[in-house]
Design a protein around this nucleic acid. Structure first.
Lengths: 359, 359
DNA sequence: TCGTTGAGTGAGAAGGCTATCACAAAGACC
DNA sequence: GGTCTTTGTGATAGCCTTCTCACTCAACGA
């Protein structure tokens, strides 16, 4: 090391100002591209930027935030990051935020109300300017979303219908998805279709079922209530699989015939497939299977699971855009509308035309 | 609203000081529990804390960070968050950080070197005090980790052996894992075992293979080189599945007999299972299958996949602890040791005793 | 009596940035 | 020639904390 002072202090804006021969004000205006920089001569800007680069100047985010009262961060509060469903939503958020001045601060509530509340608090303490909540169905949010609403910052929820709480939200069109499931199975010739619904209390579950019923009505298909099961209201992460497994075992025990099974979601479908396999029935030869969500697993299991794809990345992106818009308009909240995104049917190998005497 | 001034300014430390009748210095000392607070009279502390609570005082993180030169944040830089492998590591990190004054700032590089570099820069700009890199095998990190090393903050890598780069890292004991795979299959009576190795350039792959060979040598098992395949060096997220699928098709084409297959990781195993199924061979009746990692999918596919579990949450936790220790000792780096955590064999339904004439 | 020590508190100065206002010069307009 | 607007730059005042030093008072030993 040369006999420099070993202090190695950071370069400050003042250093740049001195070196470039302008005042700190001008330098600040130029480097932060404030509105006033319109008036700054082009060559001044040039010179300032060059010396800044030469000195390796990096603004101090804390000083900046302290003075400007803006954190340039948004909070992302996830119910449970281990839900594969969440990950793509996060990617959508991240991609949309990339390029904006906002940095996401991600917190995972681990399906725990207390933790959720604590992290919400923490994010507010860090002065996030906006908030995105990524919900999944396993989580009983209780009054938590009301506390979100109470914070006076633009907030939006992805993955759960929260219109009744006056919070903006973005979800898939579950009703359309349910309709598609039935339509697909019907078109393959299936008429004896079993259904495993989601927990009753869940809006998603109600809408999907409504879509299925609508198709049934329109097409004259009859959905035998004895072949409809409902997942219990448990809230542990693997409950979908377990629930699907047990519901299917239950269905098999009734000895009622069904040539296709529509599951609440992919995990439920995987549980159902396990049960069918244990009973010696193969998919899709003996029973077609449709899931919902299109989590990565759906593509990697054998047979590949035909399912209804939620446009997760797009959902995350859309929610983020709505929040950014509110932020840009310096509004204090996102409009409390429910936004529905269309699902798509993804064909894989778990569904096939009905055969045998049912054909 | 009562006719208050509508300014609704934040409560500052000064407000608390005035209300409590002490100087800002004293209030600061008490509320931030600085070393000097030892000397402050108990009842003074009490009084200050009470008025702070009464006023609803919350310290301004930016002012605090500006003055104290500490951000109370650590960066978490993930190669690809959609890798299911990462998620539990993240949970381990999060759990370990919870309760400390450090907030994680998570960034996802999307398997993109440029993005990685950009985010690293961003994190440094945000003045994170420590850094945890969560690696996966799909990512060619190039010189990136050297740039991490160049930042003078405690950094640690999870999921990749980086001891040669003089960076601390925490990984699973791949050699032991490979050994376990062979041992398990051997004990089930398998003697004709096919192997799908990971990409050659990958350390993990070399170690696992070394473990397998060691067991083979110790037990006298012969590993036929014609039944060993190597995944190509491709770097796209689903390459494991595709690679497993193709390697297995290739193996089947040779018509060489094998009663068990050891896959590089779970995704590879799932691809292999797809290929076996397409060829009319069922798992585990016709061929046992072992994966590596124990990603959630391994438990939900049918048959459930027997695999070697990486203690992912523990890996994240251990790495975080090492970083926290360095931080606590105000060191500028984590000791560049490679730390190996033991894997465990998870028994599911994809392996079974060998049968038929091979028994 | 004079330092000396320790407990307890306060004054004042940063820390690096930006917002606001003020100022200066130059052209435009009446 | 005076006023107004536009363009371009600088001075100053904080933003809210924490840190350093200094001060007071009491007790204590020499």
């Amino acid at each position: 090391m040369p006999p420099h002072k070993p202090k190695s202090k950071r370069v400050t804006l003042l250093d740049v100002a001195r070196k470039a021969g302008f005042s700190p004000s001008t330098v600040s205006i130029v480097l932060s591209e404030a509105p006033l920089s319109r008036y700054v001569a082009a060559q001044t800007k040039e010179r300032i930027r060059k010396t800044a680069a030469a000195l390796g100047y990096r603004p101090d985010v804390f000083a900046r935030s302290l003075r400007s009262r803006r954190s340039n961060t948004v909070g992302v509060l996830v119910f449970d990051i281990s839900d594969p469903f969440c990950v793509f939503i996060l990617q959508g958020i991240e991609k949309t935020l990339h390029g904006t001045p906002y940095l996401p601060i991600l917190m995972d509530a681990h399906n725990d109300q207390k933790r959720f509340a604590g992290y919400l608090d923490l994010l507010m303490e860090r002065r996030v300017e906006g908030l995105i909540v990524v919900a999944n169905w396993l989580f009983d949010e209780g009054e938590l979303l009301s506390t979100v609403k109470a914070e006076k910052i633009p907030s939006v929820v992805v993955g759960r219908d929260t219109s009744e709480k006056e919070l903006g939200s973005v979800i898939v069109d579950n009703e359309a998805g349910g309709y598609e499931v039935m339509k697909h199975l019907y078109e393959l010739g299936h008429r004896r279709i079993a259904v495993i619904r989601g927990p009753d209390s869940l809006r998603d579950s109600q809408r999907r079922w409504a879509g299925m019923q609508r198709f049934a009505q329109e097409s004259g298909l009859e959905l035998d209530p004895r072949k409809v099961r409902t997942l219990p209201e448990v809230l542990d992460p693997t409950s979908g699989f377990q629930g699907g497994l047990q519901a299917t075992e239950d269905l098999l025990r009734t000895r009622l015939k069904f040539t296709a099974l529509a599951a609440f979601d992919d995990l439920t479908a995987l549980g159902a497939m396990r049960a069918l396999s244990a009973a010696g029935r193969s998919v899709p030869q003996d029973c077609s299977m449709v899931g919902f969500d299109d989590v990565p697993m759906a593509g990697f299991c054998t047979p590949g699971l035909t399912t209804i794809r939620q446009p997760m990345e797009e959902m995350g992106g859309t929610a983020t855009k709505r929040m950014l818009d509110a932020l840009a308009a310096s509004e204090t909240e996102v409009s409390p509308d429910l936004q529905l995104l269309p699902p798509t049917l993804v064909l894989r190998d778990s569904t096939a035309p009905v055969r045998g005497k049912d054909a």
